[in-house]
Deep mutational scan, measured.
Amino acid sequence: MDALKSAGRALIRSPSLAKQSWGGGGRHRKLPENWTDTRETLLEGMLFSLKYLGMTLVEQPKGEELSAAAIKRIVATAKASGKKLQKVTLKVSPRGIILTDNLTNQLIENVSIYRISYCTADKMHDKVFAYIAQSQHNQSLECHAFLCTKRKMAQAVTLTVAQAFKVAFEFWQVSKEEKEKRDKASQEGGDVLGARQDCTPPLKSLVATGNLLDLEETAKAPLSTVSANTTNMDEVPRPQALSGSSVVWELDDGLDEAFSRLAQSRTNPQVLDTGLTAQDMHYAQCLSPVDWDKPDSSGTEQDDLFSF
């Protein structure tokens, strides 16, 4: 819950932080000083300027060897085509990944977070970031790969997607708890209302004896509580940590079903599988986004697919 609360507080303090972009060759504004600060901008989305290598189908939802083989196929196909790589912007948030063309600003792909089953910074092609997700059109699994400016960037994108998945799962947990509370309150309110109706004398007997209905007592009954809980029953509950912020979080049926399955089948359902080692994760978390744009010590960066 700490990640969720800190993310909400950060967004309320400075929503404009989320509009910064990394990996864009110096076009961005001043960047936060450390990885923790940038992680807090996830709610509205972190932007990464990358190059799209392509996509291939895979048979399993996750796995280092599986993704490595898929990336190898994608890279080989991209090299064989001889075409310049498409420059894209990857927007990562707890909602998922939005992929747009840098030149036309046209939407290429919009992947809900619950469809993503794996992401990684490839070991062999260490400047490549990739994720595996279920197609929104059918049940097939797709591996999408992107060329980053350097290994640090690939690791940073991988960690960002993993963190977005974690925050999304926490949102789901909060929403589920809130819905259970509202359902319980609604049920209790309905029981109270039913009890009051059972003990209320029939209207005919009131008229016969000349008694008047006590409207004041009726007004004191917990009807307002019942209506408050039943009027918006169809509205999706939102985490309290975000009250007053500009973010509107809505959970669709697909996300609810997917996270429910994860909660039942996995020990740590909030953790998205990645190909990063503990050492890689520690190294990337210690980086400032400013470091992502620094040239690798191995030599001059080449803006070309064939540089790796």
Rank of each mutant, 00 (worst) to 15 (best):
S243Y: 07
D273C: 05
T149H: 13
A164E: 15
K204M: 05
C199I: 04
R261C: 02
V92Y: 01
A185G: 14
S243K: 04
S6K: 14
T218P: 11
Q106H: 14
R238N: 08
M281S: 13
T38F: 11
G189D: 02
T120C: 02
M55V: 10
A284N: 14
M233K: 12
V290D: 08
T277V: 10
Y118W: 05
K79F: 06
P295N: 04
G63K: 01
P202R: 15
E170V: 05
T277Q: 11
V161F: 05
I98A: 01
I97T: 01
V207G: 08
A76C: 01
K152A: 10
N211H: 06
K294A: 07
R151N: 07
F129Q: 00
A10N: 04
S93Y: 15
A7L: 01
A68C: 01
A278K: 09
K19M: 13
E40I: 02
S205Y: 07
E177K: 15
V174F: 03
G275D: 01
L53T: 01
A18C: 10
K62V: 10
H28F: 11
E65I: 07
S307V: 08
L31V: 12
M281Y: 06
E178N: 07
Q60F: 09
N211E: 09
P295C: 02
S260W: 09
S288W: 08
R73Y: 08
K204D: 05
Q173V: 14
D122I: 01
R27Y: 05
G26I: 09
K30C: 11
S243H: 04
D183K: 13
D253W: 02
D198R: 06
R39E: 15
L255Q: 07
Q270I: 04
T160K: 05
P222K: 11
D303M: 07
G194L: 13
P295T: 01
E59F: 06
S140R: 11
F165E: 02
S246P: 10
L99W: 11
V207W: 01
E142N: 10
D234R: 03
I116Q: 00
D303E: 11
G63H: 01
T149M: 11
L206K: 07
T267Y: 11
P222L: 11
A185C: 15
A164S: 10
S243I: 10
A241C: 09
E44P: 03
L11S: 15
L43V: 14
K72S: 14
K84M: 06
V167H: 11
S186H: 01
P269L: 03
K123H: 07
I113T: 03
V207N: 07
A219G: 15
K83V: 14
H144E: 00
S298T: 05
S260N: 11
A154I: 01
A208Y: 12
A78P: 00
S297G: 12
H137D: 07
T104N: 01
A185P: 15
A78L: 05
R9L: 15
E109N: 08
V290G: 04
G189M: 02
T230G: 04
M46K: 08
S175G: 15
S246M: 06
A76M: 08
E250W: 04
W35K: 14
M46R: 10
L223E: 10
K166T: 15
C119R: 00
V88G: 03
E33A: 15
Q86L: 09
K91S: 06
K87I: 14
K294E: 08
F259L: 04
D296S: 11
K179D: 05
R27K: 13
G63W: 01
D122K: 00
R73W: 05
I132A: 08
K204G: 14
G26H: 05
S140H: 15
L31W: 09
D296G: 09
Q106R: 15
P32N: 15
T38V: 12
V192K: 03
R115S: 10
A70S: 01
G244N: 12
S117W: 02
N102V: 15
V157W: 01
D280M: 07
R95H: 04
D101S: 14
D191H: 12
A80E: 14
N105L: 11
C199P: 11
S93N: 11
T100F: 05
R13K: 07
G24F: 10
W292V: 02
K123Y: 14
K72L: 04
G25W: 15
S260D: 05
D253L: 04
T158F: 03
V290L: 03
A80Q: 08
G210E: 13
P202A: 07
K91E: 05
